[in-house]
Structure formats: structure tokens, C-alpha cells
Design a protein around this nucleic acid. Structure first.
Length: 124
DNA sequence: ATACTGACTTTCG
DNA sequence: ACGAAAGCCAGTA
């Protein structure tokens, strides 16, 4: 009997992508929060890895709003002089998320997930 | 197998 | 409030 091959896409990545798709327009979540919701507590760094590998055409027909994920300090986790930093900040401001002094006020913009809706939407 | 690397988080001073 | 340090852990070489 042949051994099973590793899946083409890490199953954990797809869970992370699916969770990020639930973050609403105009809200943000932090890496650790996404990891927890994806059932991967303690794996905040893995969320960053997964977001760097989102397929160009999104996931299961939907785009993945990677720009809505920032770190627990409310800051964008790219060097301020980098191209990606500028892109992420622009995408956030496009949806009315204020980025002041390289920082988003989490008390105003952090996503507060609705438990019942999460249970309905997540498929694992 | 081992070592290094981060799109992280928390604690400390 | 802020930077440094330490802890963290899958992915990568």
C-alpha cells in the first residue's frame, strides 16, 4: 500500500484563511485572535505565514482580507518603510479604519466575533 | 536531525 | 508609553 502524501495545501492554512474571511469590513483582528478562533492557540506566528501564502485567486471563491490582521499592539507588522506596510495601511484607510501614528485603536476597531455566528460559519 | 527564521505575544524596566 | 528581552513554534534550509 502506498503511503499518503502530504496535502498540497496545509490544512491549518485553510482554516486560517477561512477564519480571516469572517473579519468584517471596517474591523481588524490580531494574529493571536485569529489563531485562537481557527483552533490553533499559541500559533500566532503561523497566521502570518499563512497570510503570506494566500492563493492569488483567494480561497474557495472568496478573497482573503489579509490587511485586516494586525498585531496585538494595534500595529501593522511590516517595517514602516516597506511597500507592504504602505499597501496595508491604504487598504485599511479605504474602509474607514483609522491608522494614526502607525497604530489602529483596537478599542474602536477590533472585531468582536459573535459566537453563535462563528459556530454557524466555521466548518471544522 | 539540527539550526535559523519570522506578517507574534507577553513581561519588564 | 515604549523598547528590549524572552518565550514561542511551525516552516524552511
Amino acid at each position: 500500500m502506498l503511503k499518503n502524501k502530504k496535502p498540497a495545501v496545509n490544512v491549518n492554512y485553510s482554516r486560517i484563511w477561512q477564519t480571516v474571511q469572517l473579519i468584517p469590513y471596517g474591523k481588524v483582528a490580531c494574529y493571536g485572535q485569529v489563531a485562537d478562533l481557527a483552533g490553533l492557540p499559541g500559533k500566532a506566528r503561523l497566521v502570518g505565514k499563512a497570510l503570506g501564502k494566500v492563493p492569488d485567486d483567494g480561497w474557495t471563491g472568496q478573497s482573503v482580507p489579509w490587511h485586516r490582521v494586525i498585531n496585538s499592539q494595534g500595529k501593522i507588522s511590516f517595517a514602516v518603510e516597506s511597500e507592504l506596510f504602505a499597501r496595508q495601511r491604504a487598504l485599511l484607510e479605504d474602509e474607514q479604519v483609522a491608522v494614526i501614528g502607525n497604530r489602529v485603536k483596537l478599542t474602536d476597531f477590533q472585531w468582536q466575533p459573535d459566537l453563535a455566528e462563528l459556530l454557524f460559519k466555521l466548518t471544522y
